[in-house]
Computed example of a mutant assay.
Amino acid sequence: MFVQKSFSGPQQNGAGTLYLVGTPIGNLEDMTFRAIRTLKEVDLIAAEDTRQTRKLLSHFEIATRLVSYHEHNKQASGSELIRLLQEGQSIALVSDAGLPAVSDPGADLVAEAVEQGIFVVPIPGANAALSALIVSGLPTERFMFAGFPPREKKSLAKWLLQLHAQEGTLMLYESPHRLRKTLEAILEHLGDRRIAMVRELTKRFEEMARGTVTECIAWIEEHPPLGEYCLIIEGSISDENTGELAAAWWVELSMEEHVQHYEAELGRKDAIKKAATDRGLSKRDVYNEVNR
């Protein structure tokens, strides 16, 4: 059992404090006064990309020593940072944008610090996923952050199927060059749900595209994706009569397998129509998918 009282004075074990400092997600004015003060006062700043962070420090005239901590050096660098914390130094951990330790190697450093009885203090700031959620127009009472989708097609399908029954709004990140493939996979495995595609948050070209998955696919055909995206997706809808999640026996089937399930009995045309009804899609969408 380890109870941390962040503002009770120096730690009895003589260790320093690890501060998790939120940084701008686009606009430099996302930075808080507390974040700037903390970065000036700590002994050391550990950054995901020192080149990116150096620009931020220069803008706010912060001269604190800067070191690198990222996915590829986290074992060696992490051990050294823990040693310095145990010796009493205070360290601020920052990511390239937003809150550190969210889909970020900083989570490993935090876990080790907690294991060693070192205080970990949050310095809140901007977060892309939550910012996108609150402007999406979708429910915010319950939500789930899912991070980055898998790249490989089969892994992506399995990942989406695991999310299919989630009733809360889904939040995930995607790169512009993978956006279309991910939207098509969402359409196939989750159905034509309401969605918000949010990009360039707090920057000059901030944009929110809201509609169904089908409408968003059509939008990016006319407007090629630019910048990193936050996708906010409607959660699974409960059956009004039973209060339970609507049965979806077909969720593990591909579109072609779904159509084949009905084909022997109904024929190809009606099988496509039936599969479209199951998934909440148009007949044209299903037809195009199975006839590529």
Score class of each variant (00 low, 15 high):
residue 122 P to Y: 10
residue 78 G to N: 04
residue 21 V to D: 05
residue 261 H to S: 09
residue 273 K to V: 10
residue 292 R to A: 14
residue 47 A to P: 04
residue 258 H to E: 11
residue 244 E to P: 01
residue 114 V to N: 05
residue 270 D to K: 15
residue 210 R to S: 11
residue 182 T to G: 00
residue 102 V to H: 10
residue 123 I to L: 09
residue 21 V to W: 03
residue 56 L to P: 03
residue 77 S to W: 06
residue 173 Y to L: 12
residue 122 P to W: 11
residue 135 V to S: 12
residue 132 A to E: 01
residue 273 K to P: 07
residue 140 T to V: 15
residue 179 L to S: 02
residue 24 P to D: 04
residue 96 D to Y: 02
residue 267 G to S: 10
residue 20 L to N: 03
residue 69 Y to G: 03
residue 10 P to L: 08
residue 125 G to K: 00
residue 37 R to Q: 13
residue 211 G to H: 01
residue 182 T to C: 11
residue 277 T to K: 15
residue 286 V to A: 00
residue 186 I to W: 03
residue 110 V to S: 08
residue 182 T to Y: 00
residue 47 A to W: 04
residue 111 A to R: 15
residue 260 Q to I: 13
residue 30 D to N: 08
residue 56 L to Q: 03
residue 136 S to C: 09
residue 137 G to N: 05
residue 156 L to I: 04
residue 144 M to P: 00
residue 290 V to S: 02
residue 117 G to Q: 07
residue 185 A to Q: 11
residue 73 N to L: 08
residue 46 A to S: 08
residue 37 R to L: 12
residue 129 A to Y: 03
residue 285 D to W: 09
residue 221 E to T: 12
residue 170 L to E: 01
residue 199 R to K: 11
residue 115 E to K: 15
residue 130 L to N: 10
residue 116 Q to M: 12
residue 243 G to Y: 06
residue 79 S to A: 14
residue 267 G to T: 09
residue 38 T to P: 04
residue 121 V to K: 08
residue 203 K to E: 11
residue 36 I to N: 06
residue 152 E to D: 15
residue 7 F to S: 10
residue 20 L to Y: 05
residue 5 K to N: 14
residue 240 E to A: 14
residue 256 E to D: 09
residue 10 P to C: 10
residue 286 V to T: 08
residue 228 E to Q: 04
residue 109 L to V: 03
residue 92 A to E: 01
